[in-house]
Amino acid sequence: MGVINLGEPRVGTISRVAPKPIKFVLNWGRRYSLWVFNFGLACCAIEFIATSMSRHDFIRLGVIPFAPGPRQADLMVVSGTVTDKMAPAVKRLYEQMPEPKYVISFGACSNCGGPYWDSYCVTKGVDQLVPVDVYVPGCPPRPEALLHGILRLQEKIAGESLGERYGPASPVPVAQPQAESRPPSPAVLRRPLQRPPQPTSADRPEDPPEASPENPPENPPREPPQPPESSSGQRPDAAPRPGPLPPPNSVRGPADPSEPNLFLP
């Protein structure tokens, strides 16, 4: 038999341009019938299984476990350490899911590598492979934390528009950074060590090359003073590097699926 290329299952055009009441009904239906595909890779899978059992019972929320396979699933819960060896399988099974598909990253390991972020063979977060909708923190998280993550996902589904999610303009939902509500931007997290605010930098001229004699005595002789924002201008090669201890946020790359994937051809 020859190989039949069916192509990726995609959302139809009509559901993208559907009017708002129809979208509401569609979102309502998607929200409360999430067939879940458990990508259990490590100990967090035990908590996932506990959530699916009668004590926590996420069928109450419309999350139906035991999908026959990824082709019948709407939601993938990646729970556990994603190793580099497992990464192609994660990517491949995600691509097999039909298209209004959602991913919950459950636990520290799948969020960003967790305790193994320094390991040579652990993927630093499943968001390097597939776009993740909800991150549930914990090591492992409580079963109720997964329920809360599912609730957050349902809120997201209720408010989303598939045209924006899968449209040609922005294929991946990009979270808009709000400067007020979210202090750590990626630039902040990857910056070098913060310089202390210098109290006398306001009344000082812009670029004094050396410490002037009218410096107050509580400032010991130090490097040429710089305002704290311009710390990237001192050495162009040292600026993008993190401090002496590389924080793991700088180790892991951005969650950008448009990057070339290293694991798949």
Binding site: N111, E144, L189
Partner: peptide, 12 residues
Amino acid sequence: FEYAEYDILDLT
């Protein structure tokens, strides 16, 4: 325990 986020940067 209810602080699941849409963006991983919000977990910091």
